[in-house]
């Protein structure tokens, strides 16, 4: 049976190193299978997060050969077998142990986004073409790979000023809900810090759900922020009409 070398980060918040493991490869195997094999035969205390093993829960995020990926979806036959496969935890979040990171930042940001507020007296009729737009964003499985790859968080650690792509599409899914009347534009500008995004589209590239994060969510939200804050005619109209 062919073998592949893995270099897996072992360690915690105080430091660590890549440890070599040899893994026996079977047909159709994914990186998560390799981690299970290491747990079962070599390192029972290897820390990984996983749940569904079907790319539906977004738990097993890691960096495979430097690329933010889901371990359950990365087949070994897509990687170069002559080189060792490195598996490291997501870099944008503090390490807890081995491949597990502290992603609590995300849950804190989510709490700050005002929830869905329906139009009063609605009859709850919605057309499919109107829900399609928000449904795209609601496909998000919260793997946080977009957060991990975003240089604003990854390289500049602006966690205090910038919510990250995941929470911009969350906000977009609410803003573009056909029956929602809440106004989130000020918080999208100030708390989520949408201005920090300079649309490099790295988030879109790593999204396992293939959500067009930048084009369909962030850019339209940026336009709404611009319309609100930087369009003088619109501002005048709002002053006189009292609309938001």
């Amino acid at each position: 049976m062919p073998e592949v070398n893995f270099k897996v980060f072992r360690g915690n918040s105080e430091g660590g190193e890549e440890v070599d493991y040899k893994v026996e490869v079977t047909e159709g195997m994914v990186v998560l299978d390799a981690m299970f094999q290491i747990q079962q035969t070599k390192a029972p205390d290897l820390a990984i997060r996983w749940n569904c093993k079907a790319a539906k829960c977004g738990s097993c995020s890691a960096e495979i050969n430097g690329k933010p990926s889901l371990m359950c979806k990365t087949r070994l036959d897509t990687l170069d077998p002559s080189k060792p496969v490195t598996v490291r935890p997501m870099r944008a979040f503090p390490i807890i142990k081995d491949l597990v990171t502290d992603v609590s930042f995300n849950y804190r940001v989510n709490k700050t986004i005002p929830p869905f507020k329906p139009k009063p007296g609605t009859d709850w009729k919605m057309l499919q073409e109107d829900v399609d737009r928000a449904q795209e964003f609601r496909k998000c499985i919260e793997c946080f790979l977009c957060q991990d790859t975003c240089h604003v968080l990854r390289d500049h650690a602006k966690h205090e000023q910038f919510g990250g792509p995941r929470w911009l599409i969350r906000a977009a899914s609410l803003e573009m809900h056909p029956l929602d009347v809440e106004d989130r534009i000020p918080m999208i500008r100030e708390k989520l810090g949408i201005g920090f995004c300079n649309i490099t589209k790295c988030c879109t590239e790593v999204c396992p759900e293939e959500i067009h994060i930048t084009d369909n969510a962030i850019i339209p939200l940026k336009e709404r922020v611009v319309d609100r804050y930087y369009d003088p005619i619109g501002k005048l109209i709002r002053i006189f009409t009292g609309n938001k």
């Binding site: 869905f116 919605m126 057309l127 499919q128 928000a134 609601r138 609410l174 929602d180």
Partner: peptide, 20 residues
């Protein structure tokens, strides 16, 4: 299920805009 919709869930629709 209607309650979920009132909490923001977006289900697939019929041509007349109801639950499919």
């Amino acid at each position: 299920v209607r309650e979920l919709q009132e909490w923001g869930a977006l289900f697939d629709r019929t041509p007349s805009g109801d639950f499919l």
